[in-house]
Design a protein around this nucleic acid. Structure first.
Lengths: 262, 262
DNA sequence: TAGTGGTCTAGACCACTGC
DNA sequence: CAGTGGTCTAGACCACTAA
């Protein structure tokens, strides 16, 4: 009969620290004791404590700056609500969902946009139905919460739609690019988002200031117009430990299926 | 001017192994060389190789069985499509979305359901609007792909709806619990899913056979009827490295907002 | 029983921070 | 400059697998 084997020391120590942090024993923004101190307290080698803290870093619970101490996370977990309702509400107020979410938490939000014509990645070109060698419009956005970068997004649109319209400007006017696409008779009618968890690439890791153990949500949204043509591909990159994702939808279409049995 | 510093050895080795696996140099199901062999090849200590492989485990790229060798992942990444369209299609075929997805990949699917009356967690009781001390109906489901456990789900429903109906049986009849809720005049009209990434709890870690470094998607779905009453709370737990998540929705509601400017 | 991965130590050196 | 975390080695012992 297998007895429950004890966990390794470094996992036990990680659990102790995790609970202490979640209990509030370490205030957000404060530092842990030095690894050597923790090692003496638990009667283990410094290396073992280092392994424990490595687990906490994976969850974004702490953050280390080389040379300085290990700091307890300050930023709360952010919520991204992709639901139509949310977006209607926000657009009615002429501000982005991102701004609104951070206001809710009382955090300062910044974001900056840059627009350029670039060769799109092959898979994006294929989705947009354009020649892979022809430039497309790339709208890149960096989003900061309280001076911490928390999201990157690149929105790709075909030049034959975007050229000469406000879509190719930094300021797209009221309602954003979706309203401008509607102006052109290509208002989005269906969205699909695909979520994967992956390693950040080296650039992303630098910009988002992430650890080796941490992962990002790679969310790809495609927007199709009423004819089913994909008019936008938006690739978003979010540090996974910093976000929770929400989707809401109505199922009126299903009423026929859910009808009572005779 | 900061020069790009070289990565640590264990990260370099992890990258080499990751690329080799993704290139197919190691077939799915085959084993890596022993750590000691890899250590000699790269002129590092065995410990350093162990650190590298630890990074691969986090992504589910390899799997170790103590005493045996390190095995390359066999199971492909599974797709979970929560969209209405997907579910309509599947329900028309009287089989679950999970079965359909695995059929698509040519993998054998199993799942088993157990039904019981239990005290629900406080947050679930609150969502369902029931007394926290009163038992609710819990429908627990384990899903296996090719004998590997890949998902756990617990569906909570209030007893005043479920008692004495097929909802409280293992076999809920055609269309599943949503059709039975419709029979009762409480067909679901709106769904919300919230996705978080977290540590598996000890039970989940055992059942899902997960490593310390690995994380699960915790997806909570709430289903509300036409009156806005939440009639089901479904807590799903999926090893994050094993799944990609898809959401699709239509934006007909937004036409008014996207209308062309005069 | 031999091979393998998991964990741990003691000690070392580095790069970086902040005084 | 001292303090701190990051990495690495050499060596050890353990638990487990498979022959």
């Amino acid at each position: 009969m297998p007895i429950t084997e004890p966990q390794p020391r470094y996992q036990q120590i990680a659990d102790v620290l995790r609970e202490a942090i979640e209990r509030g024993d370490y205030a957000p923004g404060s530092t842990l004791e030095p690894e050597l101190t923790l090692a003496e307290r638990h009667n283990v080698n410094k290396r073992t404590v280092n392994m424990a803290i490595r687990l906490l870093r994976a969850d974004g619970l702490v953050h280390v700056e080389r040379g300085a101490r290990t700091v307890v996370r300050e930023l709360p977990v952010l919520r991204r609500d992709a639901s139509a309702r949310q977006r209607i509400r926000e657009q009615g107020q002429a501000r982005g969902a991102f701004q609104a979410e951070l206001e809710r938490l009382g955090i300062e939000a910044h974001s900056n946009v840059s627009v350029s014509e670039q060769i799109a990645p092959d898979d994006v070109a294929e989705l947009l139905g354009i020649d892979p060698a022809t430039p497309a419009l790339a709208r890149r956005r960096h989003m900061l919460a309280d001076h911490t970068p928390v999201q990157l997004a690149t929105s790709w649109l075909p030049m034959d739609l975007a050229a000469g319209t406000p879509i190719a400007e930094v300021d797209t006017g009221p309602g954003g690019i979706y309203s401008r696409l509607a102006d052109l008779g290509h208002g989005p009618a269906e969205f699909t988002e695909t979520i994967r968890l992956r390693l950040p690439d080296p650039d992303e890791r630098t910009v988002l200031r992430m650890d080796v153990e941490q992962r990002v949500y790679a969310i790809r949204r495609t927007a199709a117009d009423a004819d089913g043509r994909i008019v936008e591909v938006n690739d978003m990159v979010l540090p996974a430990h910093q976000w929770e994702l929400v989707y809401t939808w109505e199922e009126s279409q299903l009423c026929v299926l859910y009808k009572p049995r005779a």
